[in-house]
C-alpha cells in the first residue's frame, strides 16, 4: 500500500516537472513578452501544484504545509504576471508581428 502511494506520488512529481519543462520551452519559443508570460505562468503554476500533490502522496504528514504553499502560489502567481504585463504594456514593450489587435489604448501623458 505504502509503495503504491509512493509510485503515484512520484508519477505526480514527474507530471508536474514535465509542465515546468514545457513552461521553460514556451519561454524560449514564444515570440514576444506577453506570450512568454502566458506560457510561463500557466505551465509553472499547474506544474508546481502537481509537484505539491505528489509530495503529499510521498509524505502525507507534510500535507498541510504543502497545501499552504499551493494556496499561496495560486494567488500570487497570476498577480505577479498581471502586474508585469501591465507594466510592460505601459512602457510599450514591442509586440510580436503576429499580434492581430490591441484594444488597450494607453492614456496620453506620462505614466503614473
Amino acid at each position: 500500500m505504502k509503495t503504491l502511494l509512493d509510485v503515484i506520488g512520484a508519477l505526480f512529481l514527474v507530471a508536474g516537472t514535465s509542465f515546468l519543462f514545457l513552461g521553460g520551452l514556451g519561454l524560449i519559443r514564444m515570440p514576444d513578452l506577453f506570450n512568454r508570460i502566458q506560457s510561463g505562468t500557466k505551465a509553472t503554476t499547474l506544474g508546481t501544484i502537481l509537484t505539491l500533490i505528489g509530495a503529499t502522496f510521498l509524505r502525507p504528514e507534510w500535507g498541510i504545509k504543502l497545501s499552504l504553499i499551493g494556496l499561496f502560489l495560486l494567488f500570487t502567481n497570476p498577480l505577479s504576471s498581471q502586474v508585469l504585463a501591465r507594466a510592460a504594456h505601459r512602457i510599450g514593450v514591442e509586440k510580436s508581428a503576429k499580434t492581430k489587435v490591441d484594444l488597450l489604448v494607453e492614456p496620453p501623458g506620462d505614466p503614473r
Binding site: G24, L27, G40, T48
Partner: peptide, 12 residues
Amino acid sequence: VAFDVVTIVAIT
C-alpha cells in the same frame, strides 16, 4: 519573466 519562472522551478 525568466526570473519568475526560475523562482517557481526553484520552489519545486
